[in-house]
Design a protein around this nucleic acid. Structure first.
Lengths: 222, 222
DNA sequence: TTAAATTTTTAAAAACTTTTTAAAAAGCAT
DNA sequence: ATGCTTTTTAAAAAGTTTTTAAAAATTTAA
């Protein structure tokens, strides 16, 4: 599910927006202040930010900067007629803006357009709606929360990501991850790691949607 | 039978198209919204998509992206005169477009042309109109639905695919699949697997069209 | 047309793979 | 060195697949 950071100090607007965005199948995280917003950017990997200019303890420009550093697109929410701040926002690299009061449909379509522009731009991989893997940061989040993976768990995950949709035999995986010229580790090690990884990234590890078992053939990430 | 994904939010158009495409021996799967369309792409392996720009919960560009990632060709349906979206669509890798209202004959000929271009491009094998084998994914679909094959069933199928049109004696098959230097399994094992495979992939297992029995000689895939 | 040969079908036992749990070994930072 | 985490191994449990055997059906040839 696409996660949107909503940085806005007006509670009424937040609530209205949240409700509408949810109905359109977006997930929202909210922040009233700049510090809060930047913290969320650092930890929760939203795919796009909607940023009001006026925020508690700071303003939207700071948030915009923080987002652009992470290659996360920004749409400004501005008071209508406020030409100056629009210009400044776009200069800072904001991707779009929309003047309040805005029509929900228009907002959604702008969000979608911007998301499309960014598709493929980042090194973030989205797995099955809930998990985001940021290869640059080496960080994995599930529903916006950081998932701690060990080095091997992460390695295994990246091998799958680099072979998305492709059947990988157990041997291929063992070679890719443990290859030390011929003598492998116990074949079961792989199995245990598959289990651990699923435990951490699958919504329901009993019914894995991200890493599928192809009995007798291997595993495949979808 | 060639399966076409029809992503279009106008019910009247869908119905008309569906009827016409069927009369031309295409199989259709339909989606009104972007999400629906992308799900179908993921699960149902259509050979080509006809995509309208305006879709529920999203638009045609997203669908186009998803299709291109899977090496599935896309033909856009656009309002006539809408130059901009045509350009954008083709930029995104769409293979062709046709402006509404379109003449059925023209649409069909464009579909056929695009399909011809893609012939041989993918690693998918189409067996007897209904079954698609994706060797990369290790996945087999029948009428768009995933067929679960065991490892040996899959192995047997791939041996036939790699020897399409060639007579394979029972012994050759046993060697290829069960070869463990000389001592084979019970000769009947093969027979049982032929039956299982037919049960899963043939339209009518009693009258097999994909794997033919050449009595006294062996089997042959056509 | 009937017997013989071959293939198909069914069902159940045997074998195997994957999953799960748990604990030992190795590695790392303080 | 000590305490912590990660990696590896082992072995039982669960779930499927593979194999076998034998009966039924079909085809071929005398």
């Amino acid at each position: 599910m696409t996660r949107i950071l909503l940085a806005e100090d007006d509670k009424a607007i937040i609530e209205a927006l949240q409700k509408y965005l949810r109905s359109e199948d977006f997930d929202t995280v909210t922040a009233y202040g700049q510090r809060e917003a930047e913290q969320i950017l650092a930890e929760s990997t939203p795919q796009i930010c909607l940023v009001d200019l006026s925020l508690e303890n700071g303003d939207g420009y700071g948030v915009c900067n923080a987002a652009k550093k992470r290659n996360i697109p920004v749409v400004f929410l501005t008071a209508s007629g406020d030409e100056m701040s629009v210009v400044k926002g776009l200069d800072m690299g904001a991707d779009d803006y929309i003047a309040k009061p805005f029509r929900p449909r228009e907002l959604i379509s702008r969000i979608r357009r911007v998301l499309r522009q960014y598709e493929g731009t980042s090194k973030n991989f989205v797995l099955g709606e809930h998990v985001i893997v940021d290869l640059e940061k080496g960080q994995v989040t599930k529903d916006g929360k950081i998932v701690e993976l060990s080095a091997l768990e992460y390695r295994l995950l990246t091998v799958f990501i680099n072979n998305k949709g492709i059947l990988l035999s157990r041997n291929k995986l063992l070679e890719d991850i443990w290859d030390i010229g011929g003598d492998f580790v116990n074949d079961n090690t792989l199995t245990v790691y598959i289990k651990r990884l699923r435990e951490k990234i699958e919504q329901d590890p009993q019914d894995p949607r991200i890493i599928k078992t192809m009995r007798g053939l291997g595993y495949r990430m979808d």
